[in-house]
Design a protein around this nucleic acid. Structure first.
Length: 270
DNA sequence: CTAAGGACCTGTCGGC
DNA sequence: TGCCGACAGGTCCTTA
């Protein structure tokens, strides 16, 4: 489920409950996520104070004096702050219990998520070679143009490549290309600087709008009903195949690229 | 180096 | 109603 806006919303939702709190205990019910839950999570985390909560790409970084927990929500993960003692469901794999009586509960039915540990998270092999954050100034049209030079892959798959830019998943790749009026199958290396600039702007706009929309659901992270983070998204093309384009009324098309579905308007996107 | 495809899992939905 | 295949918003790893 989570794309970058959901991860950012999760971070903001749990922050008030876990920052500067002491970890009293950790309960791991399911060790087998995408990678085994790091041993340090159980061995080192209890007794530590959570000093910081930050995000790099789609990883949440929970910082302590002993090291940093790296949490990824994968495809179906979600976080929730609960009262210690709240009965766990089948897919509630990890609880990080706090001295306050609350706990951070990690649920992930598909188990594509992960919970790792690093002393220097930004040097971790999974983070070290990632591209820039989409909302940073380093991510712009010039960067895209330079990085795409000689690349024959489609611009949609290029955008979803984490070593190019992080945080643009399947939904927001389609959305951004629609806003920038670029055809998703166009070769990345054959897009002009001007159009790359409008693409970078589109990515920033689409992601920040989604993050803003998530702000209304922050309360869901504690004691809410249903899944947290399922805020109403205002999607212009994703999932709208055979429905009218909001700009030209022609029907939205769907294709498969790299085993992922892409939605676009044949008339507006060139 | 780039690009393509398989792999990891469970839940849900549409069609027969 | 029950079963079965297709598909789901991630991303790493292997292979060519």
């Amino acid at each position: 489920m989570p794309e970058l806006p959901e991860v950012e919303t999760s971070k903001r939702g749990i922050a008030p409950w876990i920052e500067d709190q002491d970890v009293s205990n950790v309960v791991v019910r399911q060790q087998n996520l995408r990678w085994p839950v790091a041993a340090e999570i159980e061995r080192l985390l209890p007794g530590q104070r959570i000093r910081s909560l930050s995000r790099r790409a789609k990883y949440l970084l929970i910082g302590t004096d002993a090291g940093t927990a790296m949490l990824h929500l994968g495809m179906s993960g979600s976080l929730r702050v609960i009262d210690i003692g709240t009965p766990a469901g089948v897919h509630d794999h990890v609880d990080i219990e706090l001295a306050s009586g609350k706990a951070l509960r990690f649920r992930d039915p598909r188990r594509f998520g992960s919970l790792l540990w690093a002393e220097e998270p930004h040097e971790h092999p999974l983070l070290r070679n990632l591209g820039p954050e989409p909302l940073d100034d380093a991510f712009n049209g010039e960067y895209l143009r330079k990085t795409a030079r000689g690349r024959r892959v489609s611009i949609k798959q290029f955008l979803m490549n984490g070593s190019v830019v992080v945080g643009v998943g399947n939904i927001y790749a389609s959305e951004s290309l629609f806003v920038a009026a670029i055809h998703p199958k166009r070769q990345a290396g054959r897009i002009s600087l001007i159009r790359m600039e409008s693409l970078a702007d589109a990515v920033k706009m689409v992601l920040s709008n989604a993050i803003d929309a998530g702000g209304t659901t922050l309360r869901d992270y504690y004691d809410g009903d249903g899944e947290p983070g399922h805020f109403q998204q205002q999607l212009e093309v994703y999932g709208r195949d055979d429905e009218p384009c909001l700009r030209c009324q022609r029907l939205i098309s769907a294709v498969v690229q790299g085993q992922r579905r892409t939605y676009y308007c044949k008339n507006c996107q060139r």
